[in-house]
Design a protein around this nucleic acid. Structure first.
Length: 544
RNA sequence: GGGCCUGUAGCUUAGCCAGGUAGAGCGACGGACUUUUAAUCCGUUGGCCGGGGGUUCAAAUCCCCUCAGGCCCGCCA
């Protein structure tokens, strides 16, 4: 059984209607790690709905959380906003300075592109801006209970987290006259007001039914569970540690008369060789940046095919090609399973196929869509080759049609794949091993491969072959069919094996002994550029 | 100090939650094809499932201990 179906099964015991929540603080640039949280939720929601339950995805935006510090991507002007709620401060402009004239706030500035990325992934969450929930008094009851029972709250926090709580502590963070949550000391609680004093000795009070303050994180979270009726929530492993905020939250929510959600702790996504991603370092791959390269179903597949508690290595190099081809492979299994049932399969195989099936089912951008069966030949890596040698899309489709990989017009997702492939190739992420570099002269590696020491007659044959090839190239029609004929006919005339001939030519043209269909590739480059390295090779052979 | 994840074939790994003969991909090796080229097809090779103990008719799988690597426990998911 797929992990999401398993979560759904657990949820079914609690009822039929479910709220799966994601909560993220929009304190900076969103990265693909955040994608994991929301897509994990989305997958669980789909599993519940597939099982006949009624589930919704709620994305709680922690917009009332304060700015903690001046992040590296912010100008030092942001110093003055530290401690202020994120929805009340201006977004950074292109230089990281506060953009005072902007229409949207800091939180929205970072959230909007993320929401856009989610839509491309087929995720459409209900948004709940936390500051609005505070403004409308939704947290009033929870705040009142926590304030009235602050001794119990303190006891839970101390016992479970081991953190000592000072005498005279109140579970509430008010916002001061200057709009900041920093530097205030709560002095009392007179329902519905929290009384406080700032560092200058100015007194003030905050109404708990408004956004004049908020609950501290460890109380804020269980309060959200109660307010929104959250029944399941995935969260990062930082919250999952024993004594962490989930541990205390599940006790505190009891005071509110609500149940804790079923936890789904998940691991970080790591960038290949670069450690975990963090908004505060430069180790970031933005969701939009990732989606410019990775097809959405592949990104979903990356998450659906790994159990939440497993690390995911996000690698935009060779692994991406492998992952994409695994996806296509599973799609074929998925499609075949709908047609035939193999009764002789062992229980183990059935179980395995179930997992793969689930991974594919939840990878679809459109829920419950049956994945299109991709032709075995039209693989991801083949597409990467075509994209490199065919400059316009139509000739890519043309090539695929002539080689029988495509029938008629390309599907929308295939068009998308080609677009993303072109972006990938244009980026620094594309693996060098798959990159085609057209050589106009013979590289030193190729030179070594070209010359056969102590075999003068063999070198003579090669020279003669290349010379006639150059002659043919100078006058022949410049299209792949005639070029293909030139390569093969001349090779036969010189009694050279075709494989051998191709390896030689690949070395000369690409600097390595293999490559995509050579004639198509040569037909794509100017005649003189194809001839130049051959002439160079001839002079090397002459000198030998 | 507390918690989590990982350790299975040369490499990447599936299987572990609900115990029942260890699967796959890549690589390597061999063969087929010979206008055949990041191929394709067929075959072969390869694993005391990190180590030790326990439970069981039966353990990669459950329990305890241990070793190794990674990560989290100041709101960075």
């Amino acid at each position: 059984m797929h992990w999401a179906d398993s979560v759904a099964q657990n949820l079914a015991r609690r009822g039929n209607s479910h709220t799966i929540a994601a909560g993220i603080t929009p304190s900076g640039i969103f990265h693909i790690g955040h994608i994991r949280e929301v897509v994990t939720c989305d997958i669980i929601v789909r599993a519940c709905n597939d099982a006949g339950m009624d589930a919704r995805l709620l994305f709680i935006v922690d917009s009332i959380d304060p700015l903690r510090k001046v992040y590296p991507f912010l100008h030092s002007d942001y110093e003055e906003y530290i401690g202020h709620p994120l929805y009340k401060i201006p977004p950074p402009d292109s230089e990281g300075r506060p953009d005072l004239g902007a229409e949207h706030n800091y939180a929205a500035h970072f959230l909007n592109p993320f929401i856009e990325a989610l839509r491309e992934l087929g995720v459409n969450p209900e948004l709940s801006w936390n500051h609005e929930a505070y403004e409308s008094g939704k947290f009033e009851d929870a705040a009142r209970i926590f304030l009235n029972r602050r001794k119990d709250v303190a006891k839970i926090l101390t016992e479970i987290s081991g953190r000592p709580i000072a005498e005279g502590w109140y579970p509430y963070t008010p916002i001061g006259h200057d709009g900041s949550m920093d530097g205030l000391t709560v002095t009392g609680w007179e329902d519905p007001y929290v009384l406080w004093i700032d560092e200058e000795g100015n007194e003030g009070k905050s109404h708990i039914g408004t956004a004049e303050g908020k609950l501290p994180w460890r109380m804020d979270w269980p309060a959200k569970w109660a307010v929104h009726g959250v029944t399941c929530e995935p969260f990062g492993k930082d919250h999952a540690a024993s004594g962490g905020s989930y541990s205390t939250g599940r006790q505190l929510v009891d005071l509110l008369g609500a149940q804790p959600p079923i936890p789904v702790p998940y691991e970080w996504i790591q960038l290949k060789g670069m450690g975990p991603m963090s908004s505060s370092t430069n180790v970031i791959v933005g969701p939009l940046e990732a989606l410019e390269i990775v097809p959405p179903e592949i990104l979903r597949f990356l998450i659906s095919s790994n159990k939440p508690k497993r690390h995911i290595e996000f690698d935009t190099g060779t692994e991406l090609i492998k992952k994409a081809e695994l996806y296509d492979h599973y799609c074929r299994i998925y499609a075949n399973q709908n047609e035939e049932k193999n009764d002789d399969d062992s229980a183990r195989k059935v179980k395995l196929k179930e997992e793969q099936r689930g991974a594919i089912r939840f990878a679809q951008v459109i829920p419950r869509e049956i994945p299109r069966i991709t032709s075995h030949k039209a693989s991801f890596s083949h597409l990467s080759m075509l994209a490199q040698i065919r400059s316009d899309d139509e000739s890519v489709w043309e090539s695929m049609r002539t080689s029988g990989m495509l029938d008629g017009e390309p599907s929308e997702s295939l068009v998308d794949r080609l677009r993303r492939m072109r972006n990938w190739i244009a980026s620094e992420h594309f693996p060098d091993a798959n990159r085609l570099v057209i050589q106009t002269s013979v590289t030193s590696d190729a030179r070594d491969a070209l010359l056969i020491p102590d075999d003068i007659s063999q070198n003579d044959i090669t020279r003669s072959y290349l010379a006639t090839l150059v002659e043919t190239y100078r006058s022949c029609e410049w299209k792949d069919e005639t070029i293909q004929n030139a390569i093969c006919d001349n090779a036969r005339d010189h009694d050279i094996g075709l494989r051998e001939a191709f390896v030689t030519l690949y070395n000369i043209h690409l600097g390595k002994g293999y490559g995509p269909k050579l004639a198509s590739l040569i037909a794509e480059i100017p005649r003189e550029d194809a001839i130049a390295p051959l002439v160079d090779a001839l002079s090397i052979l002459d000198g030998a």
